[in-house]
Design a protein around this nucleic acid. Sequence first.
DNA 1: GATGAATGAGAGTTCATTCAT
DNA 2: CATGAATGAACTCTCATTCAT
Lengths: 195, 195, 195, 195
Amino acid sequence: MTIIIKDLDTKKRLFDSAAKVFAKKGFDKATVDEIADYAGVAKGTIYYYFRGKEELFLFLMEEGMERLRLRIESKINDADEIAYSLGKIIDIHVDFVKENSDLCIILLSEAWGISARQERLQDMLDKYYSIVGKFIDAGIAQKVIRPMDKGVIAASLFGITTVAAQHFLRKKDAFDWDPVNSQIREILLRGILVD
Amino acid sequence: MTIIIKDLDTKKRLFDSAAKVFAKKGFDKATVDEIADYAGVAKGTIYYYFRGKEELFLFLMEEGMERLRLRIESKINDADEIAYSLGKIIDIHVDFVKENSDLCIILLSEAWGISARQERLQDMLDKYYSIVGKFIDAGIAQKVIRPMDKGVIAASLFGITTVAAQHFLRKKDAFDWDPVNSQIREILLRGILVD
Amino acid sequence: MTIIIKDLDTKKRLFDSAAKVFAKKGFDKATVDEIADYAGVAKGTIYYYFRGKEELFLFLMEEGMERLRLRIESKINDADEIAYSLGKIIDIHVDFVKENSDLCIILLSEAWGISARQERLQDMLDKYYSIVGKFIDAGIAQKVIRPMDKGVIAASLFGITTVAAQHFLRKKDAFDWDPVNSQIREILLRGILVD
Amino acid sequence: MTIIIKDLDTKKRLFDSAAKVFAKKGFDKATVDEIADYAGVAKGTIYYYFRGKEELFLFLMEEGMERLRLRIESKINDADEIAYSLGKIIDIHVDFVKENSDLCIILLSEAWGISARQERLQDMLDKYYSIVGKFIDAGIAQKVIRPMDKGVIAASLFGITTVAAQHFLRKKDAFDWDPVNSQIREILLRGILVD
DNA sequence: GATGAATGAGAGTTCATTCAT
DNA sequence: CATGAATGAACTCTCATTCAT
């Protein structure tokens, strides 16, 4: 029992530590040493749980994306109106960026480009797009959303929330998220919904 | 004379080579060796023209941002209507992403995070925001744009264009940019303009 | 009782596993993990039975050398003619290489060089030389073997059998050992016996 | 000019240093650090000249084998009698082991086993066998050598010279090589030539 | 008897940078 | 102007060993 707890403990500590360090430094500048230090374990321990730096990173990303997906799917009721659901998705998204800023910074900084790893990150983005895409399709079918390219809409949703949220995250001072949240929602909804 | 021409020549070659390699690999994974190879010069030559890898990179970024700024300022007439100008800015922006995808990929991948260099990139983003911000302020004053936080709008503009443009850039096949362009414009303008 | 049987069992499994892995990878490239995996025990178990990798290895080598020594001494009758005994030694030797190729590969690959462990392996070679040397001395005394340096003869015997046997072992296809065996014997005996 | 000399100088120093260290420690135990130290260059320099430790090692081996091949082919006159040529080959071989003991120790210690690199070393052994094999074929055709398997003879030649020479090399004290040389030759020639 | 999570010293390798030419 | 041999600090990863259970 204790073993399992310790095990989970170590992996959890590694997860948090990696998120922090990767977010602060980016994948390449982050060192395994620093991640280990921050987690309070020996360097070798990381290699006991993960095959290497790359795998630790990917694990982190997939885990994060999964959380976002789970949250969206659990909070959205298929019976709700599309317009309402879309507004809720935006809220969830902004909240997620707010709560998991480390993860989101990493995603933003590493998801572009075209190398091998990035393809796997692109896959995650695609998965995300497909989650959101479902609602967009429904919205268009119900003539709630104007007939536009699904990709443009999904990318806009992702781009506007993360970049804008990021923009405010940079300022150290606490500030009121509510107006940001509602403004982002307003821009997007007005932009895509039929009058 | 010849010397000057050769000089320009070499520096130009280095600029293009660096843009390609940085875009393909990202700052950290790109090596000075590869940039030199690609430019057809010896590694030492880079250090003749730039103080180091970092400076070459920053030179590239600033040059790129300057180009965007220049283009916006030269094509926008202060006498024009705000709504018209904003639409034009979006067009210019999308065109710029399309034409300078290398540069934009770098910007997207290196502009996030908080390390030393990134602060300098953030400064660039801020500079960009301020260019756009001028029009937004004017728009709000003229009650053409709804009263919103300037930052949210600027970030939305940047986020939506780059992420969406990027999204389509990933697909190898040529495709028609016009609808993408107009849809992005539509989303944004509807989102921020008063009815 | 059960405990003792399990004990023997585990040690025996470790012995076989170590022989396989050391032969396949050499001492340095072989990992304790792999040996444990192959034996179907946990890594820690090896340290329960042996002080470490080095000791496991030496145990293996000494065990192997002892087997060869035992076999030679048990099959050779001091009353026999020297020439006959030498021929028999060669046969035994070739058979041993054939039957214990794993062990011999290790011996061949680790016995050279001058590091600490290798000195212990050299001791084994010396012990082997002394076993064979007894017969060589006797042969020279009886004027059956031409008066030559004992070391040259013993090294020749060892070199010719192991290298030649090894040479044929490399070929995957089964082939007839008898002629190889007799040819090796012929070369050596003609080479060292008086006419 | 100076550059070329320095270049050759560095590579030559690396060659000698690598031979010494590999011979003393074996491939795995030898460290790149030690090789660099011994050569009086920085560790990175090795990677300027060779792709890695492995390549440095293979370069060493191939260079060594080539030297032996060259020496045999340059000193052997096809017009000479086979028996005489074979004797000479043995002499050359023993001399070579004597003069290049470092190289030979490495060859003996790394040529056995079955891993990837070893296959490349086996290729070298095969090349060597083919050089010697030419003379053995001729000898058998001329009925100077008794009709035996060519492989057995070549392996015997290689095994007996290297192992025996090695055996004496281990003793630090200088000693007279001539009798060793002639005894090895005698064993082999008597063993394979017709009466 | 046996386990396996955790360790940490030490290895091979990369690469931005320097400098004599 | 331009070179490229040489550097060395810093990095990722390996693995024999320990020890609490």
